[in-house]
Each structure stands twice: as C-alpha cells, then as structure tokens.
Write a protein that binds this DNA or RNA. Structure first.
Lengths: 329, 329
DNA sequence: GGCGCGAGCCGGAACGTTCCGGCAACTCAG
DNA sequence: CTGAGTTGCCGGAACGTTCCGGCTCGCGCC
C-alpha cells in the first residue's frame, strides 16, 4: 500500500542525526566513531531495515562483487558438483558476492570480470583451467592442481588416508584381495586414491589390482572394468569404486558374475551420492561433504581477497566414512 | 606483465573520438547515432575487449541486478531442482543478472533486495512462498500457484496430458490396471498428475488405484505405498511413480513381491532422474527437462521486467516421454 | 594563555554508467 | 531568406557507497 521509498545510507544518517560518512563508518566499524553514536546508527539502520546497495558498494570499491566458478563438465553423476556449487553460492551470498559459472563453452577468450576464482577439481590438460590458472586473479582450487604451480589457496581432503581407512574396514570385514577402479592421474583426487591404495597394499602385503577409467567414467567403461577385475584369477573379494556413481553401476555386473554384494563380494564407493544409500544393498561410501567443501573454497577465497589469509594457504576439509550393508554383511 | 588499466566506456569513447554519451548510445542501440558512428564505436569496443561494469549499470538503473530464486527444500532426490537452478543461473548470466537463493531458513523477515522472483513449484502452505508471493515484486512461477491469485508469469508443462500419453504407452505394452503413487495436491504438478490419471482411467473404463505420499516423499513411505498397491487384489500390472526418484526405490519392493519389473509389472516414473536410466531394468520416465524449465522461467521474468511480456503471461514448457525397458519388455 | 594533539565528526570527490536537456548544423516548406 | 523541425552529438547530473582530507572541539602540558 504505502509508497516504497528506498532506504539508503543517507536516510539512516538523517534519521540518526549524523552525516553519511559517520553512518557509513559506524555501520562498517571503520573510522573513528564513538560507541554511543555507533549504537544509535546501528539501531536506526535496523529499524529502517537498511540493506546496503551492493552495486554502489562494489562500484566504489572497484570490485565486481562476483567470483568465477569452474567445475569439470561431468554430464551424469553430477550430484557431487551440484552440491559443491551450492556450497560456494551459499557461502558467497553471506559476503554479498555472486557467483558466475564458467562453462567450457565460453566463447570469449577474455577472462570474465570477477574478483577471484574457485576451481573445483582442476584437471591437468583442461584448456579452460589452464587459461584461468594463468590469469592474474586470486584463485582457490578444491584439491591441488597437478600441473604447474599451485593456486593461491587450496582446499584439500585426506583422500589417500581415507582410502587406507576404508581398506582397513574391508579387511576387518574379511576382505583379503581388494581391487580398485579409479580415474587417471589428471585429477589430484584420483591420484590420491590410487596412491592411498598402493600404499595400503604394500603395507599389508597384498597384491594390487586396479583398472583405470576416464574421469567422466561412462557407464559402459565402468562395467567393463568391473567385469575384468571380477574375471581375474584369483578373483578379488572386495571392489572399491573411485568415480562418483560407479558403484551402483557395478551392481548388475556383480550379480551377473554370480557374486552377491555384501556377502561374498564387498563393495564400496569413494564418493557418496544419493544413490548409494538407496542401492540394494546400500553401499559403503566416503562422504566427501561437497556442500561444505564448496563453502570452504569460497571462504578461503574471501579470506585471500581481504587479506585474512596469505597466498599459499592450504586448508584441510574433513571427509567421512559411511559404512553400509555392502561391506558389513 | 603489462599493467592492466580497466577499460571503461570513456576509454572506448576517447579511442573512437566521440563522447561517452554517444558511445553509450551506440553500444546500447538507444538514442540518435548515425550508423557509421555506431559501427566505429562497436569495433573499438570489441578491439579493446570492453565489458560494461555491471555495478555501475545497476546503480544507475536503480535495479539490483539480482533475481531471487526459491525452490522447495527437498533434501534428497534433488537432482531435478539442481538442474532447474542451473538453468535459471545460466539464463540469468546472459542478462548480466545474478541469482540469490532464498532458503526457508531466511532469518530476515524483509524480502531480499531483488528485481524479481522465480519460484519453482510453489507449494500452497509454504510460509516462505506465501510471503514472497505477497511481496510487490515481479514473480514467475514454474507451475501454477494453487493458492490465491497467480503470479505475473507462469511457465507450465502439460503434465496431465503427458500422464495420459504415458498410460497409453503402458496400455499398448499390455497393462490393464495401472496404479499411481502421487504427492498431495499442495503442488500444482502433483495435482495435474493426479487429474491426468483419473481422466485417463475414466476415459478407458479402468478403476483407479492411487496412494498419496508427501511431496518430499521419504523412501520408507514410498515403499509402503508401493507394497499396499501391489498387495491389493486384483493386483495392478503397472505402477506409475510421481515423486522424483520414487521409482528406483520401488524396485526392491517389486522384487520382494515376487514380480519382475518390465515383465509382469510395468514401472514408470513421472520424473526422469540420472538414476532412472541406470536402474536395472532402466525405467521409463517423463523427462521434465528441468534445466530448460529454469531457463524459461528466467527468460519470462526478464521479459516481464523489461516490458516484452505482459503480466499474466503463461508459457508452455514442453516435456518428453523416455520409454525404457521397464515398460517395453 | 598558547599550543599541540587526538578524538569525533563531516564535506566532497570518485567509481562507471545512463539519461535529460541542450546545442549546433542541416533540411525544407513558405 | 527565414524559422521550424530533425538529426547527430554532447555536457553534466545522478545513482549509493567509500574514503581522503580537513574541521572543530576539548584536554593537557609547558
């Protein structure tokens, strides 16, 4: 009903009986303002429902108010990246930042107008990633960038250690010959999985049995890899699947091979997806907590942007093992 | 290496030998500018890689450069909304707009600073939706808002008709007694499914058999509903699952009931999700094309914002049937 | 009493864009 | 030849914020 007049910092200042400069200082906690004045301004701003105009702020600060986000284009099985993206967006929103998705199909050679970049699982050899990494912009990667020099910030998870814990768990459930399906070393994550597996096998005196599939892991190649591993003699008694969603696709192969998941073949996934808990039997997985990972990346980027964090910072993002019936039979 | 000086419209104007006003007019196609001058300015801008400063533009235009987006908080099975959101974000980006996700946990009672709203599947009774709908803001909903007056724009799909086509398909595959699991009428989509089913049954002289589950369709309730339907006498020979992801959860129930999906029980999903094609057997689904739906919503909102579309506009978003082994056995 | 100093506050400019009003130069009817 | 209308272009103000520099007190010190 009532005509809506936008409430700017001047409205607040007038109402509080101070100048716009003082109001601004009071609200942002900068400058020299008495505690009393600050309290007054804050209260008035609250009363009026004042929300700073992001455009004006960013214009003044010569920042764009936007961060760029790139994730590998994995068509199916993308629930991990979906959650990751949401985590970034959510965290960016609390800093009044917006997120621009950078797709591989970007026709402009120019880097987009952004204050910084978040790169989820940068793959060595990805032309978009290479270009973005060489741009002079604050950059945070989720997992290390295997090629060349690193980013200004890295959020990483102890994948190798967690694979070790997963293999311990399989051993405790009776497995003696675990096999691994994993992506190539162009992603740091897959390389870590691979390394963790080899290390554990060496430490436990177990021969390795792995098959490599592409990072985007098409269903047929995953199934073929599983078949090969299951047909080998001596046959494995446990199967660890690296790529997201691969484990559920392997289930029919297991059945076709006359094995039963959770009974005479333990099955685990290195990426928890909605399908894992719903599979029959539910599949033990490593929960990478993608949403929190995305948020952590955004947070680190903002810390870098405002100087709270130093370039070269690495932060650890904890992940969790979710034991389910496929390994606890 | 070279010091980067930001290229503004003044840079372009100077280089083209015109004033900033003329440069602005030429680039935006407004005002009175000779074709020759316009071409020159365009070329110079291209050469310099000029990108308009969004903050300045929005500040001047008194727009926020942001649209708000709300989708129901469906914790699992969210791949539909994930894609939907991406569609909105992608389409918004080409209009230099950003997207703010509005979560139900919004602590501020005030409506956020946005130029417009996109509401995906507004549920009647959702307090956030009710609040947003009553705000004086251009609003587009995906599917109609069952309660109260409609939004300024609606993007809708012919769900009822498509259910009819799906049932035709089941009948052609031999089904005589199709049953339905569907969400309640608080969402327009579920109501349409329900209505399409009843209409088809009436037209084909078939008795109806339905079970209602909550919109967020927890797995156990979906399974219970499926069990009830399968246990009924005479038993259905086809099962249509409304809620996203429900069909895959029903599979174990079907097996446990001694039926075989695709053989003596046809199974179909009203929402195609990544899991449907990967299930065993692959499940016939209705592809709602969520990404395109999101893009369509954003597009309609922008058309409303700049006057290209009139308030009250409804646009149809086409959907597609994906027949798979679960009904073509 | 004069002076320096810091605390508290403020005016004005700037960020890059859009848009209103205006100013020349040209066209053309009368 | 004159005056009105049109075309092409331009200067300046405004959007809401931040921040630089400066102002005015009051206080304490010599």
């Amino acid at each position: 009903m009532r005509e809506e007049e936008p409430v700017t910092i001047i409205t607040v200042a007038k109402r509080a009986g101070v100048s716009k400069t003082t109001a601004s200082d009071a609200l942002r906690g900068s400058g020299r303002v008495s505690a009393e004045t600050r309290a007054t301004v804050m209260r008035v701003a609250e009363d009026l429902g004042y929300v700073p105009n992001g455009s004006a702020r960013h214009l003044r600060r010569a920042s764009t108010g936007t961060i760029g986000l790139h994730v590998p284009e994995v068509l199916t099985r993308s629930s991990y990246y979906m959650s990751f993206v949401f985590g970034v967006v959510e965290r960016a929103a609390v800093n009044d930042y917006d997120v621009t998705l950078i797709t591989s199909g970007e026709r402009r050679a120019r880097t987009p107008r952004v204050d910084g970049l978040v790169l989820g699982d940068p793959l060595v050899g990805d032309p978009v990633v290479e270009r973005l990494m060489s741009a002079r912009l604050p950059t945070v990667t989720c997992e290390r960038f295997p090629g060349g020099r690193g980013a200004d910030g890295v959020v990483l998870s102890p994948h190798a250690d967690m694979v070790g814990r997963l293999l311990d768990h399989l051993r405790d459930s009776g497995a003696r010959r675990p096999a691994l399906i994993v992506a190539g070393d162009e992603s740091d994550w897959a390389a870590e999985l691979h390394q963790g597996y080899r290390r554990w096998c060496r430490a436990n005196g177990v021969p390795t049995a792995t098959r490599t599939v592409p990072f985007d892991a098409p269903a047929d190649q995953v199934r073929a890899a599983a078949r090969e591993l299951l047909d080998a003699r001596p046959a494995p008694d446990a199967l660890v699947c690296g790529p997201a969603g691969a484990a559920t696709e392997v289930l029919p192969v297991v059945r076709a091979a006359g094995r039963e998941a959770g009974r005479d073949l333990l099955l685990a996934s290195c990426v928890d997806t909605p399908g894992m808990a719903l599979a029959d039997p539910p599949i033990t997985s490593i929960d990478l907590r993608p949403r929190e990972a995305g948020a952590a990346c955004a947070e680190l980027l903002f810390d870098l942007l405002n100087g709270t964090a130093q370039p070269g910072t690495e932060r650890v993002h904890p992940i969790e093992l979710r034991p389910r019936a496929s390994t606890t039979g």
